[in-house]
Design a protein around this nucleic acid. Structure first.
Lengths: 215, 215, 215, 215
DNA sequence: GATGAATGAGGCTTCATTCAT
DNA sequence: AATGAATGAAGCCTCATTCAT
């Protein structure tokens, strides 16, 4: 009836960010199903009720976290001004940024995998996701066009397929590292293995992009 | 008055398979955390107690399912006698088999993703996984060697990196189709898109394998 | 940056009435336990804090609502000047007013039922309820006396029992309409059924009041 | 993971009854909304999970309780062989049984009131309720017919309206006793008041049924 | 081997109430 | 006077697991 309260200094903006941050940590440990709202409350030092006050539900929080991290990835790539580079170097920079982001933010992989398990039911409701990656695709297309005009790149490249490959070659390696280590019975993540993988990706993508003399 | 008991004809092998099959269906809907033992019982038409009798725990069942499906993928690839093909055709066959398996068995993607979320804690305990994929790697290596001797393939190929790429280029596309559709706001899985993706993968892998004249 | 605050023009009377009105609507949907303070705030367009400022607690608000609606019923009946009618007509008017009020204000039934479930714990604390219905009882008693003197009514009528019956015959029918429809598997509330019920009540009450020749 | 269990001797029938009985007690204290599943578990000495195993949900339990108590009321009245009595005595017996049941089982009043607050949403789903009260209605109709033939009862009686009145005159008085006591500021439930009310009801119903000489 | 009743910890969510602003 | 962020107890329900039968 008369609960004793621990009253916090009010700061809605900070509170929202704290929950989002704690939520990202929690959801990226074991995905949506494995995450516990209680633990988000603990980690953020907020009451459980407050999480519902801000995000309405576990799903609502998850969507907010997804939007937040996708935006972060987008921002990371937006910082990259591809126009400043020669075509090959531009592609290398794109691969580097992407791969580095994934290796620095393994949460992204877990969150997105979890969302795929649920058929993207949260993301589909998001209005923010609309056109979030459009600018990047446009920039890559411009780079490809420039490379093709210079005769450095082949001309029949589907930009979506290419981008999916650039992302996938890193994403799969990093996101599936635990099972891959078991399958190949070898530690794939020694200190130098990440850069080895990155060089392999660059090699593969650029081999693909170069005009094939035998064609 | 006496409760009617549904007595099953005893057939341990059939029972085990039924549970495994129902379990695969259940675990591949929402991963380990989202799966429910009750639903496995329903789907398999077995009692819950029986599942525990056979597999000991939810984790035990999950491991058995993982082993089962990895073995299936291995068998699928073992049927492929790479020696019978010219090097390029061998690679194409490998890509084709791998990609087809994933598109026919989307469960594999969910199960493996889920296991990665849990840091492969089940698979690490498996003795069966030891060397399961060794034969395939050896066969691919032989193919690469043959191609290199014929001057068709470059000589510095890391077979693990290559295999990871072959798998990853399909796995990522298929396993992340739901988020990718939202991100690129375009249906990627129209009737003809799967074969388009497969051709893209062949193109990329073979471009990479061909010796580069500019090197 | 500064949060925009919706400052209301201060008008305590209007505010109190708005809360009371929204509260009545809310509490009459599912009774005391089912009602939500949040929804009262929404419906009244007031803040939750304001409700507590005015009424102290959910219970306080509920009591205020009960007092308000009982007063309304009393006022409704006070408008009826029984002295103006012949005894039988006076009773008919009383029945009519009572029945009409209940059918026009089904909230009353829910609120009072809910209060009875809680053993009238709120109403017992009310000072306003003291003697609220005394005048009506007195008026009915006068009517009965007049009828008895005229030989139209029997002489041994207990005014409380009679009034309880007048109220109960309508209240029960209207307040229990949903279960009654299921129990008797027939729609009891077609357009004309209410007036049919009302005539039945008049018939029954007046049969009772008329002096019985066989006694 | 390995919870310590307090294993009970198995007896599904007894278990179901125990839950139903405890549930009736709990739900009749404050209706559906006020009832707590936890308390049903405590009172029945069963685990909360078991309640859900048997009844699926709080609503499912509530419906089972409603069906149970309606059946009980029906059985109570079925035991009454109206054919054995003279018409007037038959009506008296019916009133007596009904009134006695309500005063002995005040739970019925609370449960039914609560169900009405929820627009009978549970009862409407019940198949068992279909025709449960049909036999009683038929029996009363037969009694009325007999009385009419004997010239003791009037001939234009609607059996449903009559039965609703018989029930309502007791139900309202007993179910609303707490608010009535406040409204009339007098203890209505002294030792002898129940029988006084019952006599009043008999008087009223029989006055109504007797053919009116002035008509 | 086989069943499903039974458990209890813990999951998500709600809600009356308080209080800094 | 007025707001709504913040609290925490408690509510309904789920679920892996055990075990009497």
């Amino acid at each position: 009836m008369k609960p004793v309260k621990k009253i916090r200094k009010r700061d809605p903006v900070r509170t929202g960010k704290a929950i989002l941050s704690a939520g990202r940590a929690e959801f990226s440990v074991a995905g949506f199903e494995g995450a516990r709202v209680d633990r988000v409350a603990e980690k953020s030092n907020m009451s459980k009720g407050l999480i519902y006050h801000y995000f309405g539900s576990k799903s609502g929080l998850f969507l907010a976290i997804l939007e937040d991290i996708y935006q972060e990835l987008r921002d990371e790539n937006s910082g990259l001004v591809l126009d400043d580079f020669e075509p090959e170097e531009g592609i290398r920079q794109l691969i580097n940024h992407t791969f580095t982001y994934f290796s620095k933010h393994p949460e992204f992989l877990v969150l997105v995998n979890s969302e795929n398990m649920m058929h993207a039911e949260h993301l589909k409701k998001s209005v923010m996701m609309k056109d979030l990656f459009r600018p990047i695709v446009v920039k890559i297309q411009a780079l490809l066009d420039r490379g093709a005009r210079q005769g450095i790149f082949r001309e029949d490249v589907d930009v979506i397929q290419l981008y999916v490959s650039i992302v996938g070659l890193g994403y799969f390696f990093l996101g599936n590292r635990h099972t891959l280590e078991v399958v190949f019975d070898t530690p794939l993540f020694e200190d130098d293995t990440l850069s080895k993988r990155q060089r392999h990706i660059e090699d593969m993508i650029l081999s693909y992009l170069r005009p094939n003399p035998t064609h």
